[in-house]
């Protein structure tokens, strides 16, 4: 019993976690490795590897720098008016939220909105992708419109409660 306990603690200090941790991760790598051999068999492993590496870094090294820079810009711009005059409800989220949602829709549907898929799409579906840009713009306008309206209501309500 004692020796077992000593063995376990020696293992834990050398490895950094219990043996089940290594067992689970080994199983993960075995399954993933097997699936990877299927990719090799299908002759697509090189394209797959490139896209997979791209997928690993896409959010952290491409999307995040873009949206955090945009967010910094929105925050610094929306801080300006509050320096003038008396306190108003913060405007930042009334820009940030509709802009973020609109960018989300563009991120997912850009092949339709920007017509990148036009050739395949027209051939298959028999219609053009041209309506999607207008739809996205209208949805974006509605998002900003609703957000602006909510801001107006908040300001009005805030002004009333000040009195």
């Amino acid at each position: 019993m004692n020796r077992l306990g000593r063995g376990a603690s020696r293992w834990a200090s050398a490895y950094g976690a219990g043996p089940w941790h290594l067992l689970g991760l080994a199983a993960c790598f075995v399954v993933a490795g097997y699936a990877a051999t299927r990719m090799v068999g299908a002759g697509i492993w090189m394209g797959f590897a490139v896209w997979f590496v791209g997928a690993v870094v896409f959010h952290d090294l491409v999307l995040w720098p873009l949206y955090s820079a945009a967010d910094t810009a929105i925050r610094s711009l929306s801080r300006l008016p509050s320096r003038l005059g008396r306190a108003r409800p913060a405007v930042v989220n009334h820009v940030r939220v509709p802009a973020g949602l609109s960018c989300l829709l563009l991120l997912v549907w850009f092949p339709l909105i920007l017509r990148g898929a036009e050739r395949n799409y027209r051939g298959a579906v028999g219609l053009s992708t041209s309506p999607y840009l207008a739809r996205w713009l209208v949805i974006t306008l509605v998002l900003f419109g609703v957000s602006g309206l909510l801001y107006a209501v908040r300001r009005w309500a805030g002004g009333r409660s000040d009195r």
């Binding site: 697509i44 394209g47 896209w51 395949n120």
Partner: peptide, 17 residues
């Protein structure tokens, strides 16, 4: 979206992926 820009067939890549 029929935007076939990936250099592989969708079926094996999406299943094995």
């Amino acid at each position: 979206q029929l935007f076939y820009v990936f250099p592989f067939s969708f079926y094996p890549a999406h299943l094995y992926g």
